[in-house]
């Protein structure tokens, strides 16, 4: 197969032994490889460009440390910068406010919202919270049944929505329902929608108004390509996202969308989805994601 980035760097820097400074010339060649790796991982064109420019400034003129080869040193700089850009460390959910505290799940069609709603609920139960699930997708065929089925697998209460209700009505009534059932957390699953669908984006704005959510989480597919930037910025502009969940990382996608989304929204990626089962949700680790994106 192809060389990985480390092998390529080994070649680029083979003549530069552990003395002297990293020069503009050898850095430039190495950064061309970094840019390629980022683009192959689906990092957005402009995000990749800005990133590489930033690295060049950071790296040129640095003393080559004796403990590392120049190639390793550049990889270290790149990896650290990438990790920083993705938030440095993992961030927990912020479930503050008067109960029931609400989490609003939003995103494109098929990104994994309904599944992730149930996964999150399962996680919260482990943290001794009492979540109630709220199906507010009245459009997709059997969306309500899907969430009801998942809730049944983990024995959690579900607000009994029907497709004859409006999502706004569901949102209003679910709060009372949660209180009656002694639930302290509401997780609201919404219908998938395109970021350019003004009518449905407006609906999300109204749901936000009604629910006053503590977290608005964008659920995004890790396989997303260059479009991730437009999608994330549109959802962020309309709603003011508080976090991101990246799904379907159990495949072989490099997941550059993570970097694109983070770069345009500055929102922390809080969790990653690693499978269809309800236990397949993990805390996001920026350093692991960085290595994955770079293909190392």
């Amino acid at each position: 197969m192809f060389d990985n980035l480390s092998d390529k760097f080994q070649r680029i820097f083979k003549n530069l032994r552990g003395q002297g400074k990293l020069t503009e010339e050898n850095i430039r060649e190495a950064l061309r490889e970094v840019r390629m790796a980022l683009l192959e991982a689906d990092v957005h064109y402009k995000v990749a460009k800005d990133f590489v420019t930033g690295i060049a400034e950071r790296a040129v003129g640095q003393e080559v440390m004796t403990s590392l080869t120049p190639g390793q040193q550049v990889i270290k700089i790149v990896n650290e910068a990438l990790t920083d850009l993705m938030g440095g460390q993992s961030e927990p959910l912020r479930l503050i406010g008067k109960p029931p505290v609400c989490l609003l799940m939003v995103g494109l069609q098929g990104s994994g919202k309904t599944t992730t709603t149930a996964k999150l609920a399962r996680k919260l139960v482990q943290e001794h919270r009492k979540p109630c699930l709220v199906p507010a997708d009245v459009y997709r065929p059997a969306a309500i049944e899907q969430l009801v089925t998942l809730a049944g697998q983990i024995n959690l209460p579900v607000y009994p929505s029907t497709v004859r209700q409006k999502p706004e009505e569901i949102a209003r009534e679910a709060q009372g329902y949660a209180r009656e059932h002694n639930c302290d957390t509401l997780i609201v699953d919404t219908a998938g929608r395109l970021h350019i669908d003004t009518e449905l984006m407006g609906e999300l704005g109204r749901l936000k108004e009604i629910l006053q959510p503590a977290e608005i989480l964008l659920v995004a597919d890790a396989m997303t390509g260059q479009d991730a930037v437009q999608v994330a910025s549109a959802f962020h502009e309309t709603l003011g996202l508080s976090g991101v969940i990246l799904t379907k990382l159990d495949g072989d996608a490099r997941g550059g969308a993570a970097l694109s989304i983070r770069a345009v929204t500055r929102c922390p990626i809080k969790f990653i989805g690693l499978g269809e089962k309800l236990d397949a949700l993990e805390v996001f680790h920026p350093d692991r994601m960085s290595s994955r994106i770079l293909g190392m």
């Binding site: 192959e40 098929g110 390509g225």
Partner: peptide
């Protein structure tokens, strides 16, 4: 294939 998928669609 989903049009919003990037390079992974090839795989």
């Amino acid at each position: 294939l989903d049009a919003s998928t990037g390079q992974n669609a090839l795989s």
